[in-house]
Amino acid sequence: MYELEATADLLLMNGQAKTALKQRSDDAMSEAGLIEAVLAGDRDKYGRLYGLYSPLVHGILLARVPRSEAEDLVQDIFLHALKKLHTLRDLNAFGPWIGMIARNRAMDFHRRSRETVEVSDDLKSSDSTENKAAEILEIIRSLPDAYRETLVLRLVEGMTGPEIALRTGLTAASVRVNLHRGMKLLREKLSFKEGM
């Protein structure tokens, strides 16, 4: 049902979203230049790509795997992406490409650790703020995929809606809908938990 509503809202894209899309294409052009430089052997440029996209990869992972695992996986994913960078067909689609690698890696992690008992590292912390953060994160993880990923990128990584659209390759309208509906669900779950 949520997917249907999101699709319906996609059709009602406003001017602001179009501006965001234009900005996205402008930024994508410079990223394509970075990737071409990396393919030509410039390793420093890959460091810039890492700086631009590591919050996205971390957010995608954090929405799916424990925090400590997410931090380890980020570097692995970027090294894997460097090896496979020549297979990227559209140089303007680095964000969606590495995002997909991160999602696949998170699925692999769950497949491998299915038989082991998962002890959440987030709950080990003695800091009350971090405990609270871990609890909220667990609630976000219980939301549908599209909402939890967008909410983590917005609330944890501090990215704005247009930035999320720019990095993930989603349309601005889609991100806005996901944020709105995800936040609504999160509020409901948080109020329900406080009521208990």
Partner: peptide, 27 residues
């Protein structure tokens, strides 16, 4: 929520690329 969840934000350490890791050649 931003304040609380912001504590989990990723502070990217510099990426260390091992010597053998290089992008493949485009065909």
């Amino acid at each position: 929520l931003e304040q609380v969840l912001g504590t989990l934000r990723y502070e990217a350490p510099p990426l260390e690329i091992p010597a053998g890791v290089e992008p493949g050649k485009r065909t």
